[in-house]
């Protein structure tokens, strides 16, 4: 086996691994692991109504923002 094959495999695997590492670091920075209980309990409350709530929440935020913009100072 040529040594460049080893070099390439080593490089590719470190690169792939580091993608996963960066993804995890991003998640830590975003605070996805801040609440360990929520992480576990999320599985309990994970059906259609929760999805609808999430949409509703986003819409509410947009509406409120819009209203704020149009308000005369």
């Amino acid at each position: 086996m040529d040594s460049w094959v080893i070099g390439m495999m080593l490089g590719v695997s470190i690169f792939l691994g580091s993608i996963a590492l960066v993804a995890m670091m991003w998640a830590i920075k975003k605070g996805q692991f801040d609440d360990k209980e929520k992480f576990l309990n999320a599985a309990l409350f994970d059906d259609e109504s929760e999805l609808n709530d999430a949409i509703k929440k986003e819409k509410k935020r947009e509406d409120a923002l819009k209203k704020k913009d149009y308000r005369p100072e």
């Binding site: 801040d34 609440d35 209980e37 929520k38 309990n41 929440k57 409120a64």
Partner: peptide, 11 residues
């Protein structure tokens, strides 16, 4: 109405 976001920490 008027509540934009809530985030309750389970822990």
């Amino acid at each position: 109405d008027g509540v934009i976001a809530t985030n309750i920490n389970y822990t």
